[in-house]
Computed example of a mutant assay.
Amino acid sequence: MSVHNPDVKRITTHVIQELKSKGEKISALTAYDYSLARLVDAAGVEIILVGDSASNVMAGHETTLPITLDQMIYHATSVVRAVKRALVVVDLPFGSYQGNSSEALRSAIRIMKESGAHSVKMEGGLEVRESIIRVLSAGVPVMGHLGLTPQSIYKFGTYAVRAKEETEAQKLLEDAKMLEDIGCFAVVLEKIPAALTQQVSQSLTIPTIGIGAGPDADGQILVLHDLLGINKEFKPRFLRRYADLHGVITQAIEHYVDDVKDREFPSKEEAY
């Protein structure tokens, strides 16, 4: 049973900060369409991320790189229409901010104006500092993202755990502090050692949101379709499946096909 506070009419970046201050864990999930976003929002999740994981989940691409800004705005608009309570964060997609702070600002403004979302997420640390500052300077809240950053997958060459070595761990700590200092309201930590997550979370006043980063982040996020068991191929250690919708949906469709073939659907009662 969800225990979210019904008195909070709208989750804002300020509310997210208060949750960390009170030591209350933050729940976050992805959503990409109106129908499922309505369910996620009503269930009491604080943050809904319109992730560039839509590239994988909704479009079937191998990586997050192919999804465009226009496509992200389409998904974000669908989600925002559904949401009454949660804070909606939208990923800036690959190529829309990395090389040019002016381009980053244009991309973020398009997302905010055209979708009605509440904030954006940008991957990376020092290398994208100027782009993040430029977006923040326009009054757009920014969530950071460190550790395994899927938009850089071809640089890493693997989806393995990041920051296990001291040098990379130290850089992540410095990047996290920098993101806080320039004004990010939270930071996602993806696939890093649990001990490092604890260290980062304790050193920052802004919330950390973990995915495959252990129990000591201030909040947790999963991809909705993974949590629901719609996607059966993806089986990382950090994923807990809360349902087997792959089986339920497949069985329902097979039942429908059988009923049509056997002339059992529609019945006389289902006809006009």
Rank of each mutant, 00 (worst) to 15 (best):
P6N: 00
P6T: 02
D7L: 14
E18R: 09
G23D: 04
G23C: 09
K25I: 04
I26F: 06
L29W: 03
T30I: 03
L36P: 01
R38N: 09
L39H: 14
D52E: 10
S53Q: 10
A54I: 10
A54M: 12
H61A: 09
E62S: 15
H75D: 10
H75M: 08
V79H: 04
V88P: 01
V89R: 03
D91H: 02
D91I: 02
L92V: 03
P93A: 10
G95Q: 07
L105E: 01
A108I: 00
I109H: 06
M122V: 00
E127P: 04
G139Q: 06
L146T: 00
G147H: 08
P150D: 12
Y154S: 13
A163Q: 11
E168Q: 06
A169L: 06
E174D: 10
A194K: 15
S201G: 07
I209T: 09
G210K: 08
P215A: 08
D218W: 12
Q220D: 08
I221M: 14
L224Y: 05
G229M: 08
K235Q: 14
P236L: 00
R237Y: 06
Y242N: 08
L245A: 07
H246S: 06
I249C: 15
I249G: 08
Q251P: 03
H255Q: 09
Y256H: 10
D258Y: 13
K261S: 06
F265N: 04
S267V: 01
E270W: 03
